[in-house]
Write a protein that binds this DNA or RNA. Structure first.
Lengths: 336, 336
DNA sequence: CATTCAGTTGTAAGCGCTTTTACCTATGAC
DNA sequence: GTCATAGGTAAAAGCGCTTACAACTGAATG
């Protein structure tokens, strides 16, 4: 393996000049630059990342933290993040943190020790408001050492930037449509306590209130997970509950509702309207296909990466938070 | 940020001793070790990864290459790989290569330059047999510099180890069951030219042959992608094709077949039996739920990581290839 | 023609760690 | 009492790169 000294010798310049050529930075005369580049090309030389890291204190790598990547939504996020990051020359270190605070903290610290240029969290971060302060402290601490970006989560603080979907508005609008189409008993189902989940819930409750309908706690189902059969069974065990519409915080949950409807012999959307979330393949694979809210994760990812790049280039005067609108894709589980 | 000199000074030893303590290696007296560890603990010191990398020539990082992580199957693979790697102290750099050779090659070379300890490819690698030699050459070249592990792909060569699902057998057995249950016109659908896809196809054809049934080319559908609606439309455009069973190389494709059956008014499984692959959430979300072959990707991942660890510890006397059995999960789209 | 200055390039001092080598100190054998 | 031995530790030489600073060049200025 050739090193910078070899290249310097072969191009008849000093290693400093080679370094300058590599980093494209300083002024090097066109002639010299070309000469060096030619040798680099010929020798297939590429600088040792460790040594480069030692000097630059960066490896052009960003840490991506998702709770669990098997979730379709998360996997899409990682996909688009990886793509966008690759385009601007960053590699990504993936960390599946799970949902437990300690794990997240451990993973975060590991990534910090690895000198990531930035940390990107996808979902599942809790807002400080009705949570103990401690819940998000590890992120604030991380932000003291490395810029932190959050997609669909909210933690405010120095060196923390977020990109959030307009979940409140999307659900508010969807629920309002349900109400206008005659639905009175609308269920809200969620499997998470995430920031997004709470935004969705808030949108649901606000829509009810705005329409003069009561907000009933028993119509807000908090599920342990998004397993389709589990969701179905939970609904089956709530036979007393009378509902003619359901808004789910994820397509998989909506799928569980659909299963339930079939067992109960309910007609969809006549007897029961269903709205899913994320507009994933799950919403399309079933029959009837599920009306679903798309929070445009691709946009959120691209925006996040663009903002990250700006921050990394020294521009810290960005909006701490930026909003991505959602779109409702009407399919066959709603009749509005 | 404290460095090794600080720790050395504070513990009253030399940096060499601190280094030895960190690396757990050489002989350091218990007393000294404890003393140093205490200081390290107190100061929250962690060695600089770049400097460590420079010396050790490794960063305990492995590159994971998947064509596209939004595929449920791939995301599961990445999930389990990340988990298993984390348990033995490796971080993972994720690269979504796409399906094009050039891209894969570029990503591979980038990971090699980054001094990954190993490279793990998931799926989508082609066997050398009926492909131009060039198709897998980049992997062999990579293997000259870093151990390469392949999950459900086959490239043989020095320094290359693979873990493959018993796809041939699984499909052979499934198709045989279909035949025994009276099916005569069995479709095979795949959206890929991957090693796995060809194993599945081979199993399908062998089962037909073994049962004395003809292998008809028009019953082997090669799809451009696994989009549900696209699959459905392809089938709709093949109205002349008479089939009473379909084996799909992925659940999403099976879902497309199910869509088709509904439009054609076919009863499943009476008029049309369907078998999917990967036993993903897609097979469960629909109605009827789809019989699906599970290739136990978790096992494959864990085995791969275990083997990788052995290789990295210097034990190169492993079977170059190891096989993971599959399981058929019978659901409602088959009647055997 | 001496002086200045901008544009280039080289020198050398890190960056923080690993590791070889050599040295020191007990320990026990003779 | 001497010497070999082994365990423990320190000194120092890298690892390959970045970058501050010095030095040199030739053209422009007075």
């Amino acid at each position: 393996m050739k090193n910078i000294y070899d290249i310097a010798k072969m191009s008849g310049v000093s290693i400093a000049t080679v370094s300058r050529v590599i980093n494209g930075s300083d002024r090097v005369s066109a002639k010299t630059r070309e000469k060096v580049l030619k040798v680099i090309e010929e020798e297939g030389y590429s600088p040792n990342v460790f040594a480069q890291g030692l000097g630059l204190k960066t490896m052009h790598m960003v840490g991506i933290m998702v709770p669990v990547i098997t979730d379709i939504y998360m996997s899409m996020a990682v996909y688009y993040l990886e793509e966008a990051l690759g385009e601007i020359g960053y590699d990504c270190l993936l960390s599946c943190t799970g949902f437990h605070l300690e794990e997240k903290e451990v993973h975060t610290n590991m990534l910090i020790e690895k000198h990531m240029d930035a940390l990107i969290y996808v979902g599942s971060t809790y807002a400080g408001k009705n949570k103990s302060r401690h819940e998000t402290d590890y992120i604030r601490e991380a932000a003291e050492k490395v810029p932190v970006f959050i997609i669909n989560g909210a933690v405010d603080g120095e060196n923390i930037w977020s990109t959030v979907s307009e979940d409140f508005k999307a659900v508010h609008s969807a629920v309002t449509s349900l109400i206008k189409s005659g639905r009175k008993n609308i269920l809200f189902l969620s499997d998470s306590e995430s920031y997004s989940a709470r935004q969705k819930l808030a949108g649901y409750e606000a829509a009810l209130t705005d329409a003069g309908l009561p907000v009933r706690g028993e119509y807000r189902l908090h599920l342990r997970n998004d397993n389709i059969h589990y969701v179905r069974d939970v609904l089956l065990s709530h036979r007393d509950l009378n509902f003619d519409a359901a808004v789910a915080a994820a397509d998989s949950i909506a799928l569980g509702v659909l299963k339930y409807s079939r067992i109960r012999g309910l007609k969809v959307p006549e007897d029961l309207s269903i709205i899913g979330y994320n507009n994933s393949v799950l919403a399309i694979g079933c029959d009837p296909e599920i009306t679903s809210i798309d929070n445009h994760i691709e946009d959120a990812c691209r925006i996040t990466v663009k903002r990250m790049n700006q921050v990394l280039q020294g521009n810290k005067d960005l909006d701490p938070s930026v909003i991505v609108p959602c779109t409702l894709y009407k399919r066959c589980t709603t009749d509005f």
